[in-house]
């Protein structure tokens, strides 16, 4: 509903929006700035904004002290693994629901959605117990499976809404043109579905990266990803602002960048296609 306005009105809009935008962004900006300060500058009173001696030493200290890279690697494995596994399982399911719908398709989709609503805390102990039994506690593979399962409904849904936008007639045309199921999927469906799959992968990765219930409760030393790494700063190390900031910046930077690419798809993924 955007429409033409006077330059003055546009200037007011711009000023207002930028002020609010920067205000909302400020905690992140402040964290990033603080990560380049020395500890003394970080708690200086009055606080220093830009006129401090920029340093990278916090990053070095964080890596040295807590082996940041190991946590990062765990995050990458867990988020990446659960995403890949989820997409592999979800693509055929979403494909068949979108292109060969039956009377039960809608019920199945809604049921899948309902599993997403299951409060994690309600099944915490059973999962904990199962993990102990299977020796999965504090293992990356265990978290890959759990995060894949909690994101699977969203992945299926998102892919389903993308696939449904591919007109069925195109697949029929391919069939008429002599393509078998294999060729149909390989030459027609996949190229058309790639953008949708890419956004789905992105969102699933972000959600898995930031997940902070199972990753906190099912890991200890070995498989802990960045969420748990940051939580370990809760106290008293949290009072070392510069190091906390450096650790935080490293934990959120990759996802912040990915997230900016995926903002449009986010709406679709998180509202299950209900808002377009």
């Amino acid at each position: 509903m955007a429409r033409a306005v006077t330059p003055k009105q546009k200037a007011i809009n711009t000023g207002l929006a930028w002020t609010i935008g920067l205000l909302i962004f400020f905690p992140i900006l402040w964290t990033i700035l603080t990560s380049f300060k020395t500890e003394a500058e970080a708690i200086a009173s009055p606080p220093v904004f830009l006129n401090f001696s920029w340093t990278l030493e916090n990053y070095a200290i964080v890596q040295e002290r807590s082996d940041y890279l190991r946590f990062l690697w765990n995050s990458v494995i867990i988020a990446g693994g659960s995403t890949i596994l989820g997409v592999i399982i979800a693509v055929p399911a979403a494909w068949s629901m979108a292109f060969v719908p039956s009377r039960r398709t809608k019920d199945i989709l809604l049921w899948m959605l309902s599993t997403k609503m299951l409060p994690a805390v309600g099944v915490l102990y059973p999962i904990y117990l199962i993990f102990i039994q299977l020796g999965l506690l504090d293992s990356r593979i265990g978290l890959v499976v759990i995060l894949m399962l909690i994101n699977l409904p969203i992945i299926v849904w998102m892919l389903y809404t993308y696939f449904r936008e591919i007109p069925g007639e195109i697949l029929e045309a391919a069939r008429m043109d002599g393509a078998g199921l294999r060729e149909e999927i390989l030459y027609v469906l996949t190229p058309m579905a790639v953008p949708g799959i890419a956004s789905t992968v992105l969102l699933s990765f972000i959600l898995a990266w930031n997940e902070a219930f199972w990753t906190l409760n099912l890991t200890a030393a070995n498989a802990a990803p960045l969420t748990a790494f940051i939580a370990s700063y809760s106290s008293p190390e949290g009072l070392f602002y510069a190091k906390l900031s450096a650790a935080s910046t490293m934990a959120i930077a990759p996802i912040l960048i990915l997230g900016w690419f995926s903002q449009k798809q986010l709406v679709r993924g998180l509202t299950f296609g209900a808002v377009k």
Binding site: P167, E169, I170, E172, A173, A174, R175, M176, D177, G178, A179, G180, V188, P191, M192
Partner: peptide, 15 residues
């Protein structure tokens, strides 16, 4: 695919 027929669709169904 094996019937030897060709079809033109309402939506054109181009790839």
């Amino acid at each position: 695919a094996k019937r030897g027929l060709a079809m033109v669709f309402q939506s054109y169904a181009l790839y």
